[in-house]
Write a protein that binds this DNA or RNA. Sequence first.
DNA 1: AAAGATTGACTAATCAATCTTG
DNA 2: CAAGATTGATTAGTCAATCTTT
Lengths: 143, 143
Amino acid sequence: VEFFDILVRFETELWNKVDRALIDSGQIGMATLHALRMLSRHDGSGRVNELSADLAITIGAASKFVDRLERDGLAERRPHPADRRSSLISLTPAGEKACLRGERVARQVVADVLGGEDDIAAATATLSRLLMRIGAADAVATA
Amino acid sequence: VEFFDILVRFETELWNKVDRALIDSGQIGMATLHALRMLSRHDGSGRVNELSADLAITIGAASKFVDRLERDGLAERRPHPADRRSSLISLTPAGEKACLRGERVARQVVADVLGGEDDIAAATATLSRLLMRIGAADAVATA
DNA sequence: AAAGATTGACTAATCAATCTTG
DNA sequence: CAAGATTGATTAGTCAATCTTT
């Protein structure tokens, strides 16, 4: 379980570090950046559905998140052409800009932390493999 | 930044998986388990102060967390012998029990996910090294 | 004054109930 | 009735103000 402990601790620490850097440079905060990046990845064709999956939060939370993004002028819902239950979520120009600006800082901080380490690629590969694996096998002991 | 993305994603996924397993087996939830483990690590001599640091949440949040743990009968504040501003937080017998029960399930799930992978030790070492590193060098670009 | 903690006002997540469209 | 999303009530976190002890 040591792996799990360190994983959690390091992820939290790094997330917070990037978050602080963003806030300190007068920007949007890591959670918002994370959402914008996911939306931007779908390139204007993302729905609440997918944001929920991408962020691993509930549908309700994702819906409210988009409310906030709209309120802050970073994204907007546009009617889905084929399915009137759904909206397509696209970044506004301001949202695009904030996303790029944020990514620059994030990249900087991460590079700063990882700088000089040679086995990042290996660790990335390992985590990546585990990430694949975790989709399957939901059998769980009921201890 | 790919490393960061995968790190965040995998940590979230694994955390949620363990959380679901705990809930499904009628137990306490990962956040609570995490807190109990940290308190148990200090073996009855932990203060709100330290819980805050261990969980990487604010002092206020840690204080309220302990309120909840007390309300649920999992931990209790005992007056600090030397410093009357502070309390020492110890697990109740129920808390100890819940912690052990939870750890068993967590261990099971993690083993299930990591099972058969040979380079966990290497990844753990890398993350561990980075965790050390991250304490220092708080200089940050103001892009 | 500084350190440790608590509290109140606010923000964000969850869950369940609901509404609409397929 | 399923699928997609929204909303309301509750729970947990942040931040700032405060209180007590050092």
